[in-house]
Simulated scan of single mutants.
Amino acid sequence: MPLSAQQSSSSLMKILRELDAGLMDHTSWLKVLHRSMVSGSAPSPADLKADAHCQCRFGQWYYGQPHPDLQDGPWFRNIGEFHENMHLYARQLLVKRNAGQPVAPDEYDQFMDMAIHFKLEVRGLQSDIINRVCEVDHLTGARNRNSMHFKLLEEHDRMLRNSQPCCLCMMDIDHFKQVNDTYGHVAGDSVLHAAVHFLSKKMRRYDTIFRFGGEEFLFCLPNTEAQEAYAIVDRLRTELAALPIKLKEHSEIFITASFGLASMNPDEPVEDAIQKADHALLCAKSGGRDQVCLWDIQAGG
């Protein structure tokens, strides 16, 4: 895709089960097709139609409903292309067999290559989804801290190669302990989930939110200079403060958050940028909270 990091693990697991069912249907379909080719039994009428790839069970799942979590990724597009071509070549084989014409080895190989590639692409998508599940913080939907290290190293390497800027931002939900003490920990969990869900929709597609620990989160903002990052984060701060968060046993509450920004430096370890963003966060909290503080590289603070 790559798949969205904020996507819920339950949604991802549902997709995995649907893909498993699709592969089982694919195996059953191949068995019936080969039986028709070898024994001369009548093929399924659906396999002779021009839209056969839409008629099979996998096709009904693939084309019959939207898949917003998958459609932007290369795995999903490749699966559709291989699946359609596989049915196209299968139809050509069946038409020849019904007409009593011999099937050339190259024609059969062409069909089987598509069938094999289709299965490999589905398995590749499943592997990608499993990796995403392992990278997601299941409570909030943010990427977890284990995946943060690798992502930030990737961005650091990209800075070295392309001299593109990247900013990190530490966010801490203000007075979160009071939320837990007043409304309970279940309500606190709902607040964390709602905040991450809201922010993830408001951020750019290539930005990433990681759960750093507790009510602290780290944002990675690639291709972004410090002043631009400040404007982006300050907008997020304002919009988050205006967000009514509904709780099951209460009407709604409002929260604020403090933010600390720092630019990554290609000549310094990633950990240095995280520490600077954390220091900037402390400045935001000590300055009254509900604000954004930017680490000044020139002044060193």
Rank of each mutant, 00 (worst) to 15 (best):
R77T: 06
K276P: 00
E249L: 09
A42C: 03
A21N: 10
D157H: 13
R289P: 10
E121I: 00
D47T: 08
L12G: 04
V196Q: 06
M170H: 08
R77N: 05
F212D: 00
N265L: 04
D51N: 12
V196M: 05
F212N: 01
F82V: 03
R211V: 00
A142W: 05
A46N: 12
L160T: 06
S41Q: 13
L152S: 01
L16E: 03
Q298Y: 03
I297E: 14
S286N: 15
A284M: 07
A52S: 14
V233A: 00
G214T: 05
D25C: 12
L243N: 07
G124Y: 07
Y183T: 04
E155D: 06
S200K: 10
I209N: 06
R143P: 00
P266Y: 09
P43M: 08
Q7Y: 05
Q101E: 15
A231T: 13
A99W: 01
F217H: 08
M170A: 13
E239K: 09
P102D: 15
P43A: 12
C134F: 09
S9T: 13
A187F: 05
F76T: 07
D234C: 04
M24Q: 14
P45M: 00
M170G: 08
L243A: 05
L30K: 11
A280P: 09
A187Q: 07
Y183D: 02
D181A: 04
W61N: 07
A21R: 14
